[in-house]
């Protein structure tokens, strides 16, 4: 139950300041309006909208998700956490918090996006939902472990997207492919290989993160 207690602590401190939620919400609005301004009255090709969705998701994630560990380092509470809990417990708690944040964020982005872009029509809902679900898990896991690395390094803000992008690139490429498939209405069986690649990515990232988190957290 300890990870859950850590999650509750993060949840309450988030509710008190609302820093991550507010900045994320503003970032989503800013990013979407920049895209809308730059498009103007042009007609956007259909497969471009699928790619732009993941651009918005990636940069929103980069703006808000590093808070999980950086906030602990800022408040100087890292040492206390090291004393009272095992590394795996801490990782579980932070991962849970980031997972919920990612899901909230991406649901809002997708709903706003489909309301604002007429060309963004999903023809195979099940394929899109499974892509969405798997990609969110991968995004949360990778961003949590990189947030942990960042919190221990010197330059905190600027390095986060630089470090995350190469790690997240396979996930983003496959998700863009699967999104365009689901917009074309490809059946689930035809896209099974890509879905399996996404599942593999999630599993590999999760195991690697659990194995490596000890080394980041200990020193």
């Amino acid at each position: 139950m300890k990870p859950f207690a850590l999650f509750k602590k993060d949840y309450h401190s988030e509710l008190r300041t609302r820093y991550a939620i507010n900045s994320l919400a503003m970032f989503i609005i800013v990013a979407l309006s920049v895209i809308l301004f730059s498009i103007g009255n042009e007609k956007v090709p259909q497969n471009l909208t699928g790619g732009l969705l993941w651009v918005v998701i990636f940069f929103s994630a980069m703006s808000g998700l590093s808070r999980a560990f950086v906030s602990e380092e800022d408040r100087g509470t890292t040492l206390l956490l090291q004393l009272i809990a095992k590394p795996s417990t801490i990782f579980n708690g932070k991962l849970l918090f980031n997972l919920i944040l990612v899901f909230l964020m991406n649901i809002v982005i997708t709903l706003l996006y489909s309301a604002l872009f007429e060309e963004f029509i999903i023809r195979n809902i099940i394929l899109f939902l499974s892509t969405f679900f798997l990609a969110n898990i991968g995004l949360a896991v990778a961003s949590t472990i990189i947030a942990a690395i960042i919190s221990k390094a010197g330059a905190k803000g600027t390095l986060y997207p630089v470090l995350s992008f190469p790690i997240l690139l396979p996930l983003i490429l496959i998700s863009v492919m699967l999104t365009s498939y689901s917009m074309l209405g490809t059946s689930f069986d035809q896209a099974l290989v890509e879905i399996m690649v996404l599942v593999c990515y999630d599993i590999i990232m999760l195991t690697a993160s659990y194995m490596l988190f000890d080394f980041i957290w200990k020193d």
Binding site: I149, I204, A208, S209
Partner: peptide, 11 residues
């Protein structure tokens, strides 16, 4: 950097 290179290597 060791942790990051392992993490990047699995991708």
């Amino acid at each position: 950097s060791a942790v990051y290179s392992i993490l990047a290597f699995v991708t």
